[in-house]
Computed example of a mutant assay.
Amino acid sequence: MPQKPILHRDDPMAEPLVGNIKVTREDWLNVAMDVLISDGVEQVKVLALAERMGVSRSSFYWYFKSRQDLLDALLKTWEQTNTAGLVGQAGTSAETITAAVLNVWRCSANPELFNTALDFAVRDWARRSGPVRTVLDQSDARRVEALTQMFQRYDFPEVEAVARAKALYYMQLGYDMAGLNESGSYRLGMTPEYLKVFTGQEPQPRELEEFAEYSGRFWDV
């Protein structure tokens, strides 16, 4: 039997689309992203995606000129989600540096701000593609610069701000990549200590409470 289409719809209770259907550009992107994350860029193929959704591949060309056009759109989506999400959080107003870092750590909790699995998939893709590596390097630089500016807003000297920004950013990447089997409760319990390591300052109780309330919407606590 043909595989049922796997589409991302706004209404999770809606019936899946079957039969002679039309799919949107967003559907193609969403399913391509699923495959990129689960199987790697080599498996993002037009015919395979069409079969996965139960549609003719001819509909693909209503939205994309080529497979490369789709891949370019995936990379743009990644930038608009992950890079924009982290940069935006780093620029969010906060009274203290500890509150500012907690704003950034919302990216670890909320996949709509930062899709960790997608970030890893793009990094794997970059190992096979020079142009993608260039885009990744540029995005990493934007993220580190945003974090550096965040520390500088709280009067950290330039060199120290760069060092703290890089430590914070690359630690978080490594932390997520390690796939540690830690509960949300454990991570929240460690948060005050992590903040002291990355900022040198004690967080305020109300900052921790706000972060716990926010992350509790996404973590099993």
Results as ranks from 00 to 15, higher is better:
P2R: 06
P2G: 04
P5C: 09
P5N: 10
I6G: 12
I6V: 11
D11H: 13
P12H: 06
M13L: 15
A14W: 05
P16M: 04
G19H: 03
N20S: 14
I21V: 12
I21T: 10
V23A: 01
R25F: 03
R25E: 10
W28V: 04
N30A: 13
N30P: 05
M33A: 09
D34N: 10
D34K: 13
D34F: 09
V35Q: 06
S38R: 13
L47P: 09
L49W: 01
A50I: 04
R52P: 01
G54Q: 08
V55W: 00
S56L: 10
S56T: 10
R57T: 07
W62S: 12
Y63L: 05
F64R: 00
D69Q: 03
D69P: 04
D72G: 11
A73C: 03
A73H: 03
L74V: 04
L75V: 07
L75A: 07
L75P: 01
K76N: 11
T77A: 13
T77P: 10
N82H: 04
G85S: 07
G88Q: 04
E95Y: 10
I97N: 02
A100S: 06
V101L: 05
R106L: 05
R106K: 13
S108C: 14
N110Q: 14
N110G: 12
E112G: 11
F114D: 06
T116Y: 14
T116M: 14
A117S: 12
F120L: 11
D124N: 13
D124C: 13
S129C: 09
G130M: 14
V132L: 10
T134Y: 15
L136D: 05
D137V: 15
D137K: 15
Q138M: 11
A146L: 03
Q149M: 15
E160D: 15
E160R: 11
E160S: 13
V162K: 14
V162H: 14
A163V: 12
R164D: 02
Y170Q: 04
Q172D: 05
L173E: 05
M177C: 10
L180N: 06
N181I: 15
S183Y: 07
S185D: 15
Y186G: 09
R187C: 03
R187L: 09
L188I: 01
G189V: 06
E193D: 06
L195T: 00
K196M: 08
V197L: 08
V197D: 02
F198E: 00
F198A: 02
T199R: 02
P203D: 00
P203L: 00
Q204M: 09
F211T: 00
E213Y: 14
E213M: 14
Y214R: 00
S215A: 04
S215Y: 00
G216W: 00
F218S: 04
D220Y: 06
